[in-house]
Design a protein around this nucleic acid. Structure first.
Length: 427
RNA sequence: GGGCAGGUUCCAGAGCGGCCAAAUGGGGCGGACUGUAAAUCCGCUGACUACGUCUUCAUAGGUUCGAAUCCUAUCCUGCCCA
């Protein structure tokens, strides 16, 4: 299977420019994807582009990972209803550095290899280009009519919020990136999410007009859940790749909670498993969905890829402990070390031990530790039967908590809903 | 620069002097069911020292016993004209 066939089978191909497949067959091709430095860490939304680069490199081509130090200063308006907030320079630089560090783990940068991955930052070339030079040398080649016709900006042009010139410029800036990489690094292919199609095509257009060259592109569908909601969010917010932001346990849980329908497509997209094995697994899953073989395998593959074998095993251990039925007794039997081990990925909070010795009502405890943002919310959730302590449901808001609740004389395990655990440590 | 329409709680969007912490929908959270799934049903959704009090309807002033609702100025947005 060649790269394109592979990606097509995996459902990772949306649009493709004619000739792309032939180009990839013809020679080792350099290709790039851009990453937005909107945060210091990548999140699972960026996983697909990363995987595209990995597949590309596996197929013998040369991947370039571009971090958008310059484009990040402008903000991509594609399909967005509103203008984005501008990031200040310091944050931007920090973000670029953070993202760079993460990307380095997933691609092979070994310079001895002909198709070694490379990292580039578009700030490096944009910082030397003056505004006047840019509009004369580059802006001349593209008409505003062409830029406005893009679907990606339609929402803003027809919408109620307008679009600043700054944001409108974005596609030209990104287009220039492609042009620059084409001339500087013989990069002939750009990939990205399907929302990037408009920006990417502006790049190939620029290459055609300014350099009389031919460049190619393909995009990957944006990942959505079957119910149409946004992929990559949980109750806790974004799922990050950085274990300090989203613990491997939470990360594992995210994948484990995938719905049946989604799991079938995710296993193709997010793992490197091959077709026969995937087909077999899906068949098994359809026969006995309650065993959730598919979700478990998916969670395993992705967690191992991002966090490694060891973290995965911790996550499984913690999950089985927290979700087994007789956990209430089990909790009591754990040693402190085991307890902490299991709770490694669970958010932790502290209380003064003296408060517990005096006895403290649940509501205050939950709010003051920060498990709940306010007393009101803590109260309402407790009243709705949504909070458990050490795996036993808290019955009323008058419940007073004292040192008797402490596990190993030190910890209390709170639970909001079924899946959200919080460990409180008495100090 | 001129004219017009707007800026409401997470979002969309009602309200247009007291009955407004603000309809309705979406989202979110929680409960039941289940497979840590989907669908469905139910509850909650500004804060607090909580049958009451406090801070909210772009911002700052003003009118009034009383304003999200009226007036003035400012800022922001859209549309149209120049």
């Amino acid at each position: 299977m060649n790269l394109i066939e592979e990606l097509r089978w995996r459902g990772m191909l949306q649009d493709m420019m004619p000739g792309t497949e032939e180009q990839l067959q013809k020679e080792m091709t350099t290709a790039y994807i851009g990453f937005d430095p909107t945060a210091e860490s990548l999140h699972i939304g960026s996983l697909v582009p990363i995987l595209l680069l990995v597949h590309l490199q596996k197929a013998g081509h040369k991947p370039l990972a571009l971090v958008g130090g310059a484009t990040g200063m402008v903000g991509d308006p594609s399909f967005k209803a509103e203008e984005r907030k501008m990031l200040d320079l310091d944050t931007l630089q920090k973000n670029v550095a953070g993202i760079k560090a993460q990307l380095e783990r997933f691609l092979d940068f070994d310079p001895a290899k002909p198709n070694a991955a490379e990292m580039v930052n578009n700030f490096d070339w944009f910082q030397h280009i003056s505004f006047l030079d840019f509009i004369r040398d580059t802006g001349k080649h593209i008409t505003v009519n062409y830029m406005m016709a893009k679907d990606s900006v339609k929402k803003r042009i027809e919408g109620d919020n307008g679009m600043s010139f700054t944001e409108f410029t974005y596609q030209l800036i990104q287009g220039y990136d492609f042009y620059h990489l084409y001339t500087a690094k013989n990069c002939k292919l750009q990939m990205g999410g399907s929302d990037q199609w408009g920006n990417i095509v502006t790049g190939t257009e620029l290459i055609r007009r300014k350099a009389s060259g031919e460049a190619f592109a393909f995009t990957c569908p944006l990942i959505k859940k079957a119910d149409g909601t946004k992929f990559g969010k949980t109750e806790q917010g974004t799922v990050w790749l950085d274990p300090k932001r989203t613990s491997p346990y939470m990360f594992y849980q995210f994948w484990l909670n995938t719905t049946d329908v989604d799991a079938e497509s995710y296993i193709k997209i997010f793992t490197f498993m091959e077709q026969p094995e995937v087909d077999e697994l899906i068949a098994k899953h359809r026969e006995a969905p309650h065993l959730r073989l598919l979700q478990q395998r998916l969670a395993k593959e992705v967690t191992v890829f991002i966090h490694g074998e060891e973290s995965y095993e911790f996550a499984v251990k913690a999950s089985s402990l927290l979700f087994s039925n007789d956990t209430a007794e089990l909790l009591l039997s754990l040693t402190e070390e085991q307890l902490l081990d299991v709770m490694a990925g669970v958010p932790q909070f502290e209380v003064a031990k003296t408060d517990l010795e005096a006895g403290k009502d649940v509501v205050s405890l939950l709010a003051e530790t920060g498990i709940f943002p306010s007393k009101g919310e803590a109260r309402k959730t407790v009243q709705g039967g949504g909070v458990s302590m050490n795996k036993n449901k808290i019955e009323g808001i008058d419940t007073v908590i004292n040192t008797a609740a402490l596990l190993r004389d030190k910890y209390i395990l709170f639970q909001k809903g079924k899946k959200n655990y919080y460990l409180v440590k008495a100090i």
